[in-house]
């Protein structure tokens, strides 16, 4: 890694890109879920959009992780390797929030057992819905926690 580039900044950038990746993946699942609820002609467009977004999400994740991969490949070590940062902490908090929201959502789904049977939707639908909730909550809560409301560079 270039010595002039702060390793912590690279990790922060990686986390921000990963959060964008989470939001794009959640959008892919949202379109999949929507596909079960709409009719055939529109479903084809949704499938194409979903496929394009899936490829985009893979590219975002690879792009986000690239600094780490390249560091592993070249075996280079930055002078500083401070794992702790506000952004990393925000990512951990977002994952915790996502876990709680997903758990709450699962309990809610279980309590609506009779309603679910009435809808007559495949199990795939519910799996994708749960993945959507999980991924969206990570991305959305990350950007909420890291929103810039008092972030100014000052001397």
């Amino acid at each position: 890694m270039n010595q002039t580039i702060n390793c912590a900044e690279s990790v922060d950038t990686m986390n921000k890109r990963l959060a964008i990746g989470f939001l794009v993946v959640s959008l892919v699942y949202a379109l999949d879920v929507l596909g079960y609820l709409i009719n055939e002609p529109l479903k084809i467009y949704l499938n194409h959009t979903g496929n394009a977004l899936a490829i985009l999400s893979i590219l975002i994740v690879v792009f986000a992780m690239w600094p780490i991969f390249s560091q592993q490949i070249t075996k280079s070590q930055s002078k500083y390797h401070e794992a702790e940062s506000f952004i990393t902490d925000a990512m951990h908090s977002s994952i915790r929030i996502s876990w709680m929201v997903t758990l709450f959502f699962l309990v809610l789904m279980m309590s609506l057992d009779n309603f679910r049977e009435g809808l007559d939707l495949p199990t795939d639908f519910y799996f994708k819905l749960i993945f959507f909730v999980m991924m969206f909550t990570v991305g959305a809560s990350f950007f909420f926690i890291t929103r810039d409301d008092d972030d100014v560079e000052s001397n």
């Binding site: 002078k79 500083y80 702790e84 952004i87 890291t146």
Partner: peptide
């Protein structure tokens, strides 16, 4: 000190 600017500003 090897942290990000955002970390310093939020501290």
């Amino acid at each position: 000190i090897g942290v990000s600017r955002k970390t310093i500003s939020t501290i």
